[in-house]
């Protein structure tokens, strides 16, 4: 008797299990989107990532990310993981190959992410990489000042410089580029041996990748000068070339910030040069099978990534 009951119970359990899964499959086939009632799997980069910093700032939830988030190790890892998880949502840099990773980029506040919308400023999930130099005449030597000017010209205006920055993940307007060969004529300093000069940079850590690529590309074009990068955070960018630490042990020739310089505290009008050399754009992505969501507002991004909304059905 006992045995029979156990047998019967296990048979029932098996049946229930089978019907449960087949039900799921039907659901998936008929709606063609993953079950809209599914929970959202939030993916994030580790906290030292510049992309995460930019994304959390754009979504206005710095430090408030849901504890349920799944941490991935790189931009590519993020794309792969979201590409295999129908219920996943994450964020990558604009230069990512979306189709190859089986993910769909989402519009932000109704604007599609693309190079054009980033450059004209309508796509808001972006931040500028700004630079500022020491004041004219405040450099260690005349040669150094000329070299800094040449480098910034290369970084901002040359086709070669733009390509290098773009390859490292920055968004630039390549139509504005001029071949370095032409620009070099304005910088006679580049034709002499500069191996005794060391350029020092400071400021934002997020610019490190693009800046390092540009400096390394420029080295052989400008007499093999040396450089040291001491990137500690956007706050130090202005401070160490124009502000309180400009003559301290950590002084630098060019300071960087992954934001605009603040007009009240960081007065860049006295600098030899300042500006924006590229734009960093972040894109929210979902799995390609998830066709229910195509656009997110900032409020939606915030509530999804802080864990307020945990179900895809509530995103509409």
């Amino acid at each position: 008797m006992k045995k029979l009951t156990v047998l019967w119970l296990s048979a029932l359990l098996l049946l229930a299990g089978c019907s449960g899964t087949s039900g799921n499959n039907e659901n998936q086939n008929s709606v063609s989107t993953p079950e809209t009632t599914a929970t959202i799997n939030v993916y994030t980069r580790d906290s030292s990532s510049g992309t995460r910093e930019a994304f959390e700032k754009a979504g206005d939830f710095e430090g408030a990310l849901t504890a349920k988030a799944i941490e991935v190790s790189s931009n590519g890892d993020m794309a792969t993981k979201v590409g295999t998880d129908e219920n996943g949502i994450g964020y990558v840099s604009l230069s990512t190959d979306f189709a190859a990773n089986n993910v769909t980029p989402l519009n932000f506040e109704g604007v599609e992410p693309s190079e054009a919308t980033v450059l004209d400023g309508s796509y808001k999930m972006q931040r500028p990489f700004s630079f500022v130099t020491r004041a004219s005449g405040d450099f260690d030597s005349e040669e150094k000042e000329q070299l800094v000017a040449a480098f910034l010209d290369f970084l901002q205006n040359s086709t070669e410089g733009m390509l290098v920055v773009e390859k490292a993940g920055g968004v630039v307007d390549k139509t504005q580029g001029t071949p370095w060969e032409e620009l070099a004529k304005n910088h006679p300093i580049c034709s002499q041996d500069n191996s005794t000069i060391t350029l020092a940079t400071a400021g934002s850590t997020s610019v490190e990748k693009t800046l390092k690529a540009a400096l390394e590309a420029f080295q052989p074009l400008a007499g093999n000068f040396q450089f040291t990068m001491n990137q500690t955070g956007s706050g130090d960018g202005y401070k160490r070339v124009m502000g309180s630490e400009k003559d301290g042990a950590n002084k630098a020739d060019i300071g960087f910030a992954s934001r605009e310089f603040k007009a009240e505290e960081e007065d860049v009008t006295q600098a030899m040069a300042s500006g924006v050399y590229c734009i960093d754009a972040v894109v929210t992505i979902v799995n390609a099978a998830n066709t229910a969501v195509t656009n997110l507002t900032q409020a939606q991004v915030k509530s999804i990534f802080t864990g307020e909304i945990t179900n895809w059905a509530d995103v509409q």
Binding site: G17, G20, T21, T39, I70, K81, T84, D85, N87, G88
Partner: peptide, 16 residues
């Protein structure tokens, strides 16, 4: 793992 989980009707983070 993802397939295994789906047999039980459990949703995983893409199998991780």
């Amino acid at each position: 793992v993802k397939w295994l989980a789906s047999l039980w009707g459990i949703s995983t983070a893409g199998g991780s």
